[in-house]
């Protein structure tokens, strides 16, 4: 439900990057969205369509989403495991002393612009 707010953040950052690189038109914005980032990719692209089309720089541009896997680390047996499948409990030693290593990122990876 916070996807629209995040879209406004993305637009702000892309506008800034476009200004710094002398870009006046953006074809696509590529995002890395972690599996457990609580951002729903479908909602994000829906909100993007609505908000991006209100900006000259971004009208008609596509938001491409790479979903990146969530990985947790067990402090007791020093192994990584997939977070979504096993949650807080380590599948190797059943420890609860685990923490998320990656998979909650909401990151602008790159922008695609006309090459002229």
């Amino acid at each position: 439900m916070h996807e629209l707010g995040i879209v406004f953040y993305i637009i702000r950052d892309v506008k800034q990057a476009a200004g710094e690189n002398g870009v006046t038109k953006v074809n696509a914005v590529v995002m890395n969205i972690g599996e457990v980032s609580t951002v729903v990719p479908e909602y994000l692209t829906d909100c993007w369509r609505w908000a991006a089309d209100k900006e000259d720089l971004l009208r008609g541009s596509e938001l491409k989403v790479n979903v990146t896997p969530a990985v947790s680390w067990c402090e007791d047996c020093h192994q990584e495991y997939p977070t979504v499948q096993y949650g807080k409990t380590c599948p190797f030693c059943a420890s609860e002393h685990t923490f998320l290593r990656r998979g909650n990122e909401v990151e602008i990876k790159e922008i695609e612009v006309p090459n002229d």
Partner: peptide
């Protein structure tokens, strides 16, 4: 010439807020 140029950003959307 490739019609599309890619500009790397690699920035967390939350970085400014943090």
């Amino acid at each position: 010439m490739d019609p599309i140029k890619v500009i790397e950003i690699k920035k967390s959307v939350f970085a400014d807020n943090d």
